[in-house]
Design a protein around this nucleic acid. Structure first.
Lengths: 163, 163
DNA sequence: AAGCTGACTTACGAATATGAAAGTCAGCCA
DNA sequence: TGGCTGACTTTCATATTCGTAAGTCAGCTT
């Protein structure tokens, strides 16, 4: 990306989309709960157990993610069991998948154990592995160093100190 | 993704690539420092100021990211100034860009302010906007719900409790 | 009506992350 | 040689986040 230097200093990052996203789902536990949701986990206890966090943390993160609209609670009933509530991804939550795939991909490449990747994500229709890639609206693959950043319509400016 | 249910319960997520990635760069401050690095920020004070965090936090995160190999300190000298150290992305750090793009994209769509996106990322060569997309190795775009997860070579299994 | 189980909540303490304010240190410049 | 500035570090206090352990509550089953 380019160095806009002085121009850049007038940008307020108060409403940065990355920061906003992190405020909603930026904690380790929240990310891992979303991972589990994509893996198919739906029940409270399973979230806590599989993410490896305590029940209070699981309850707090699930509540936040539900309030933020990434998860919704839906009633379900197994035969011979009472009605329960399951946590299920909404469209807003499912749209988070590229973030998780990108995180996994980076970890696979740069921080995997010696035995390699613990899980593999494949395309259901063809069986090939799935990756997060950068692509522009013209259809080009975007390689390292080929991006530039510019102000968008929602950019706030900082009023420089007088002087 | 499919629900492997019982099978899934034998998976240990202790070495999950997502969790490993989050341990290296999973805090809000670390992510935002990487964002700034992609925006072209290189100096200590600018990181602290533009990310909006205190100097102790900036120093701690920069140190961690440098130790983890995402950033490197390189000497530089402006005319008439003494030699200083700048923080610059390594290949390992630049490879983190898809994560940030995916986070930004999600925030743009689901958590933007009413004026829209604060920044826009474009392809340098053609000017079109850049997105993080999921694609399989066969070249197909992968849509919502078209992924399946399976164990990889590095998957650890949990020995079920006897009984 | 009592038991059982899943889904939480409460209580408590420890670890981590962060901010404000101030101090330290190293060189280039005058 | 002293000033100045960028780059940190130190100190102190606070806010989150997390784990363990235990308690609560609701309904379906018997």
């Amino acid at each position: 990306m380019s160095d806009l230097l002085a121009e850049r200093d007038t940008w307020s990052m108060a409403n940065c989309s990355i920061a906003r996203t992190l405020e909603i789902a930026g904690t380790r536990a929240a990310m891992l709960i979303l991972r589990e949701a994509f893996f198919g986990t739906r029940r409270f206890d399973d979230f806590a157990k599989r993410v490896g966090i305590g029940e209070p943390a699981a309850a707090a993160r699930l509540k936040e993610l539900t309030a933020a609209g990434l998860l919704e609670r839906v009633p379900y009933q197994e035969p011979g069991q009472r009605t329960r509530l399951a946590y299920q991804l909404t469209e807003k939550g499912r749209d988070f998948l590229p973030v998780l795939v990108a995180l996994r991909q980076w970890g696979d490449r740069w921080a995997a154990g010696e035995d390699g990747r613990p899980v593999v994500v494949r395309h259901r229709d063809c069986g090939a592995e799935v990756h997060a890639v950068l692509r522009c609206d013209e259809g080009h693959d975007v390689a390292d160093g080929e991006t530039v950043v510019e102000p968008g319509p929602g950019l706030l400016r900082i009023t420089p100190d007088a002087g």
